[in-house]
Amino acid sequence: MSSLKLRPKPLTHKNDPLAIIRTRQDTHGRPVTIAGPMVRYSKLPFRQVCRKYNADIVYTPMILAREFVRNSHARTADLSTNESDTPLIVQVGVNNTTDLLRFVEMVSPFCDGIGINCGCPIKEQVREGIGSALIYNPDLLCEMVSAVKDKYGNLVRLETKIRIHDNWDDTVALCRRLCDAKVDWITIHGRTRTTRSSVPVNLEAIRYIRERISDKRVPVIANGDCFSMADFNRIVEHTGVDGVMAVRGLLENPAVFAGHTKCPWGALELFWHYTVQFGGLPFRLIQHHLHCMLENMGLEKHLHRELMKIKTTAELLDWFDANFELKRKSDAGFGIAVDIPYSTKSNCSEYGMP
């Protein structure tokens, strides 16, 4: 973590996520917008793209506490940040208080808050008591929250991202206990541990739980099925929450919170810029990000097939330059185009194009 830079302490109104959540309606005329954690994909370059398109708060991918606190290689691989990467929430997968306290001690100087993953439904994580297993172990979860808040108070912001129980009142009871443990805010994913993502998120459940959390000082964020600002407004109106977290929708279109109904070309230029500037992203991850964004934009299928056959980052950048007008930061109009700017002077034969 030698490349990481310390955050200012104490938190200020500019980087305190709790203050941002509480005041966004007054300062921006809308609830807070949050780019949630995505396994592998919420890395530094993509986080910066989301910020350019009105994401107020951004999360890292989930980091396993047991690996991070014990393995220097895991620390190097799992977390990279810089001074502009703020407000930043580091999400942690953890199943005991000791590991969590060690993790917070190591990570908190480099971020603006920490989120405990209580929603991951992956069986391997659940078997180890991580992710959504924690909503069925409220004693442990609340013990972990209390331990962090008792030690750090307002110096460390702590969130829990939970799923709902089959019995919504069980979730209400859990949220009340989390409030008593002094959690700073709660994110509710409106599906149970076994609900598939193809099933619509249960907004009625989120509304029911939100209305019954007695401590109104603790904000509630809704998560699930936010793919547009129309979805954002519908979720807020139905549930009465303090903000909305988007995850899958941002992978395809990181400009959701800026009101774009499809991914703008400028987002790809920004992603390329940050990827080259910061480095460190594996080729397959770069390729998949670009695949998701271009698919959302409606790229022609034969070009998509070519894209997925490329094997290196250098070849991929050459392919973009050959087929599109890909601007660099020093070029006029960088990062603002909406439609795909196909090149009029490309050497298409190199890539098997007509």
Results as ranks from 00 to 15, higher is better:
Met144Ser: 02
Ala173Val: 12
Leu250Cys: 08
His273Ile: 08
Ser198Lys: 15
Gly249Ile: 09
Ser198Tyr: 15
Ile235Gly: 04
Arg176Ser: 00
Val244Pro: 02
Ile213Leu: 05
Lys149Met: 05
Ala258Leu: 01
Val172Ile: 14
Pro254Met: 02
Lys182Thr: 08
Phe227Arg: 15
Gly243Ser: 06
Ile162Leu: 11
Ala255Val: 07
Thr261Pro: 04
Pro254Val: 07
Arg212Ile: 01
Phe271Thr: 05
Pro219Ala: 02
Tyr208Asp: 01
Thr187Trp: 08
Lys182Pro: 00
Asp225Met: 09
Leu268Asp: 08
Asp166Ile: 12
Asp166Lys: 15
Val256Gly: 06
Phe278Cys: 07
Phe257Met: 07
Val236Tyr: 08
Arg176Leu: 00
Ser198Arg: 15
Leu174Thr: 02
Asp170Val: 01
Leu203Phe: 14
Arg163Asp: 00
Lys161Pro: 00
Glu269Trp: 14
Val236Met: 11
Arg248Thr: 13
Asn233His: 15
Gly224Asp: 05
Glu143Met: 04
Asp242Tyr: 11
Glu269Leu: 12
Ile235Cys: 10
His189Glu: 00
Trp272Ile: 10
Gly190His: 07
Val183Asn: 01
Trp265Val: 03
Gly280Pro: 06
Glu159Leu: 04
Arg191Leu: 04
Thr160Glu: 03
Lys151Ala: 02
Ala205Phe: 07
Leu155Trp: 15
Lys151Val: 01
Asp231Leu: 14
Ala230Phe: 14
Cys226Leu: 13
Leu174Arg: 05
Gly249Thr: 13
Cys175Glu: 03
Ala205Leu: 06
Asp225Tyr: 10
Glu269Met: 12
Asn253Ala: 12
Ala230Met: 11
Pro254Phe: 05
Phe271Gln: 09
Ile221Asp: 01
Gly153Asp: 09
Met229Ser: 08
Asp169Ser: 11
Ala205Glu: 03
Ser228His: 14
Trp265Cys: 01
Arg196Leu: 11
Leu155Asn: 15
His260Ile: 02
Ile188Asn: 01
Thr187Asp: 04
Ser198Trp: 15
Asp242His: 14
Gly280Asp: 12
Cys226Gly: 10
Ile213Phe: 01
Met144Leu: 07
Thr195Ile: 11
Val201Trp: 07
Ala255Glu: 06
Glu211Gly: 05
Ala230Trp: 13
Lys151Glu: 02
Thr171Ile: 02
Pro264Asp: 03
Trp185Ala: 01
Thr194Gly: 00
Val276Ile: 14
Ile206Leu: 11
Val276Tyr: 14
Leu178Met: 00
Val244Ser: 09
Arg163Phe: 03
Ile186Thr: 02
Val241Gln: 04
Asp225Cys: 09
Thr171Lys: 05
Trp168Val: 12
Ile235Lys: 07
Ile164Trp: 13
Val276Asn: 12
Asp180Met: 08
Leu158Cys: 04
Cys226Gln: 14
Ala267Cys: 06
Gly190Ala: 07
Lys161Leu: 11
Ile164Cys: 10
Arg177His: 09
Arg210Val: 04
Ile235Gln: 10
Val220Thr: 09
Lys161Ala: 06
Leu251Ile: 15
Trp265Gln: 02
Met144Tyr: 05
Ser197Gly: 04
His260Val: 03
Trp272Asp: 04
Ala258Asn: 10
Arg193Leu: 13
Phe232Val: 10
Asn253Asp: 13
Arg191Ser: 06
Pro219Tyr: 08
